[in-house]
Amino acid sequence: MTGGASFATRLGGVLAIMLLLGCALTAGLNYLKFERMLLEQQAKVLEILAGELGGTVENSLALGVRLAGVPGAQALLERARAAEPLIGGLAIADSDGVVLFDTDRQNLGTTVARALFDPRAAADAWRFRDGDRYGIGAPIVNGFGQLEGAVLLRYGREAVDERLTSALLGMVQAGLLALALAVPLGILGIHLVTRQARRWFAAVETAMQPGAAPEPLASGLQQAIAEADSVLSDAERRLEAIAATIPEPNAPTRLEPATP
């Protein structure tokens, strides 16, 4: 901790850093919580839609139709996608993962990764990540409780990102405004409350200068300096007086320099 900056300036710096840290932590942690909640809420809504689509397909299965032959399934998926802008893509795959219907027709007949199927798929909807896209799987179960396949709903987080950016901008604006006021106020406050200590240091510093005026805050130090000065001045005068007189014969003087 060497260097010229005043301790008050350093304290002000620490306070500014802690203010920044406080704002950053508040904004950052709230942002992360907000992100999680928004993603969760979005997934919840889409899960309802996927479940509803799965239910519609199950109704057809109950009539004795095989999954690959459910009438209007492709149109159902395309209508659902058109109705909900959050949906990036919809597919129906059989229990082996073969895509039977897909809003992206290029995928028809392909096999989806087994990792996209949750082992508990027969019971509940599940969520998955497919690259940078999120996904929800809703099971399609026949009348005997067997897993026939699943509705796979893919979606992006663009809508969430928009909301997050908007919230983050609001927090950043508030943070910058708060910092713009608090940092100068903090530095001013620190300089005010450290005034006495700074005066004390300045008084001690001044008191050690040659010919310094009396400093009430450093009177003890000045007294010690004055005493030493008086002793040395007196000795100087006496030695000057001795030097001015005739030298004594055969009397060596003992010399003790202070420094080697």
């Binding site: 802690m18 927090m171 508030a174 708060a178 910092l179 608090a182 903090g186 620190i190």
Partner: peptide, 24 residues
């Protein structure tokens, strides 16, 4: 001084955060 300013600053930022959270 630090307690006063930190409380006010963090309070202000968190109020803004909660408001935008509710809005979004």
């Amino acid at each position: 001084v630090a307690v006063l300013l930190l409380t006010l600053t963090v309070g202000f930022v968190s109020t803004a955060a909660l408001r935008s959270f509710e809005t979004e």
